[in-house]
């Protein structure tokens, strides 16, 4: 779908045509509206699962951030947790130092992660393929080791102690049931999703997709590839940092695994599972992966890996563009079938 849209965009040479194309892309579909309304259902239908739901929303936000660089710009990262972790630790530290207000905490954490992202983006923009994967991986591991060594600052292995998050907006405590946590995480996810959606459907977003499809040719048409990559990478780092900060604030814990390889790999799996380059892929992937894990681990705490492994294999065998990609395909063929049958009936 996306490569078609680029072709379509390319065909539209007149500026007015390009504007119309982008405008058509950004129009809200009713399925999207229903989807976002459905995210409110856990409050009513599954109040016992709100803590899980809040962490699903945070993971979805993290996956959305990875989608911006992987799905839309072709940057494969195995170290994206670095920015998640910087955000998480920043939010934790300012709370330990006496400022537990969550919203300002998010802003500061986002800025900190964004700064680290901006600095690293200069290296990132120069590399592609396996080298890029290994550089992101190496950077993530280095940062985790640094956090381990700086025990005086980070609390080391035991994690940062003494985090206390003040009530949201001065009113809503982060409760045991997760009402506040889910509302907070969901609102954050939705707002940032709106921003990401706007970015993707802007001329800048189109340029990014061009880089993904053919990074060598973009400079030839005058697109500043490197600076585009640096910009989107920094934006993705900010979002990852905010996701990390939300996790710290809602759980009042942060430890080294917030920076770890496992988290980087998990988010990559969620995104591929849901489908890359579709904005909703990361969200769907996070929901499916975390709910499946919760259910499998509940039934079979020792061997749930087996079932989640089978799930991944099944998805990749039968839905090669992720769950969302597979569903789109199904829906399209169903639509075509339907149209054909109607046409057949009216001679």
């Amino acid at each position: 779908m996306t490569s078609d849209s680029i072709a379509a965009a390319a065909r539209e040479t007149a500026p007015a045509g390009a504007r119309d194309f982008l405008r058509g892309q950004i129009r809200w579909r009713w399925s999207e509206i229903v989807f976002w309304l459905a995210t409110l259902l856990p409050f009513v239908l599954a109040p016992d699962y709100l803590v899980l739901a809040s962490q699903v929303a945070i993971s979805a936000l993290f996956a959305l951030s990875l989608d911006l660089i992987l799905g839309f710009s072709g940057i494969v990262s195995l170290g994206h947790a670095a920015y998640f972790g910087v955000g998480a630790y920043t939010a934790g530290l300012i709370s330990v130092w006496g400022w537990g207000e969550p919203l300002t905490g998010l802003v500061v954490a986002g800025i900190a992660a964004g700064l680290v992202g901006y600095v690293t983006s200069f290296v990132i923009a120069r590399f592609r393929h396996l080298a890029l994967i290994m550089i992101t991986l190496g950077f993530g591991l280095l940062l985790q080791e640094a956090a381990n060594s700086a025990g005086w600052l980070t609390g080391g292995f035991n994690g940062l102690q003494g985090i206390h998050t003040w009530p949201l907006l001065g009113k809503f405590e982060f409760d045991l049931y997760g009402y506040t946590a889910y509302a907070y995480a969901l609102a954050g996810l939705f707002l940032i999703f709106l921003v990401a959606r706007r970015i993707i459907h802007s001329p800048f977003g189109l340029a990014l997709r061009g880089i993904r499809e053919n990074g060598a040719r973009m400079p030839a048409i005058g697109a500043p590839t490197h600076s585009h990559i640096r910009t989107i990478y920094t934006i993705a780092a900010i979002i990852a940092g905010i996701a990390g900060a939300m996790l710290t604030q809602s759980t009042e814990t942060v430890s080294l695994e917030a920076l770890g390889f496992q988290r980087s790999a998990d988010v990559l799996v969620m995104l591929i599972l849901g489908g890359t380059g579709k904005l909703y892929g990361g969200i769907i992937g996070a929901v499916v992966y975390m709910v499946a894990r919760d259910q499998f681990a509940g039934l079979n705490p020792q061997y749930w890996y087996f079932w989640i492994g089978l799930l991944l294999i099944a998805v990749v065998m039968f839905l090669p563009n992720g769950i969302l990609g597979g569903l789109e395909l199904l829906a399209e063929s169903a639509k075509a079938q339907w149209a054909k049958s109607k046409w057949a009936k009216t001679p």
């Binding site: 494969v76 790999a265 990559l268 061997y303 890996y305 989640i308 492994g309 294999i313």
Partner: peptide, 30 residues
């Protein structure tokens, strides 16, 4: 499995083989 993915993109290869890793870990533990 693998032969169907020689021409697929590397992300699908990653997901497939990570799935196999998970299954192998659980099987070994079992």
């Amino acid at each position: 499995f693998f032969r169907r993915f020689y021409n697929s993109n590397e992300l699908n290869q990653c997901l497939l083989t990570i799935g196999i890793v998970f299954v192998s870990i659980a099987a070994a533990a079992y």
